[in-house]
Amino acid sequence: MKKIRSTFLIVQAILLVFCCFLPGGCGRSEKEKIEKYSSVVFAMDTVMEITVYGDEVSLKKAENLIKDLEEKFSVTLEESDIYRLNSEGSASVSEDSYELLNKGKEICERTGGVLDLTVYPIVRAWGFTTGEYRVPGEDEIGELLKKVDYRQITLGDEGLVTIPEGVMADLGSVAKGYTGDRLMELFRDCGITSALINLGGNVQALGTKPDGSLWKVAIADPGGGEGYAGVVAMEGKAVITSGAYERFFEENGHTYHHIIDTSTGCPAESGFVSVTVIGEEGVLCDGLSTSLFAMGPEKAFEFWRESNDFEAVFITSDDRIFVTEGTEGSFTPLGRYKNVKPEVLRHDQN
């Protein structure tokens, strides 16, 4: 009996504690404001951060979409469309894979083969897929180069894709950009007007910030470390950067990075250290950032002059910054580039 009584006392004490919290907990007024929801997903070998101003449901949908697309595009997952295509030579693929292969081929075409969806065997020979880096011999590269041709991927009817033996398709250079586009579409369908995603360095935004101001996207310092080379202000665009600093290794005093020149089969010696492409379409920006990097200044600037669907920020290895005219004013150099005056590229100059 006495035990019960002391239990009562403790229960009373606990109740008293709860009473103290009640006014704060229940009395709070519901604020009319857009809630911010964020989540971090590990997919496609990278960290993906999603921030949505709206509701939690769309965030969950976004996570599922990413997982879903990863299972279709992966080169290594045995059930994926791309794995089946590469191992069997032909496969009936999902709508997403078909569309992305199609889109990817278009960009390859547009860049004249600087971007190539079938460069995978060479990237693998250099060890960039596994981390076991090595410098392949000239003969080996020559042999592998014969298998690099995106035109060998044939897109047939009803989702049927065929590929000759020895040729391997890899959507790595465009998959994150496409995923970004799909996420933006999803958010728009959910009625969201403000969202920002960062898919392992590929930044893409929907609308502006909730307060109407522009998103500020920093461009990583190509020298590595925590610093920024500059910041771009934008709304509703994808900001995608390619740089030699992402994956590289050193051997015999030479640095080899992961952006392969599809004409030589070796890391591109382009004179760029970082290329950022800004545009409406994520998949295009993703594909172009890599290809413009590989092209080098002369060809890349020419390529931009002939286009009208993207803007760019180029940083060269001699620390010069070139911005396209659409980026003039929205790009601010930072960090060790603070005193570098960006040189503006214009459509009507030669």
Partner: peptide, 10 residues
């Protein structure tokens, strides 16, 4: 504040 970016592109 103004100098802190919302995201980093790399």
């Amino acid at each position: 504040g103004d100098d802190v970016p919302d995201a980093v592109s790399k």
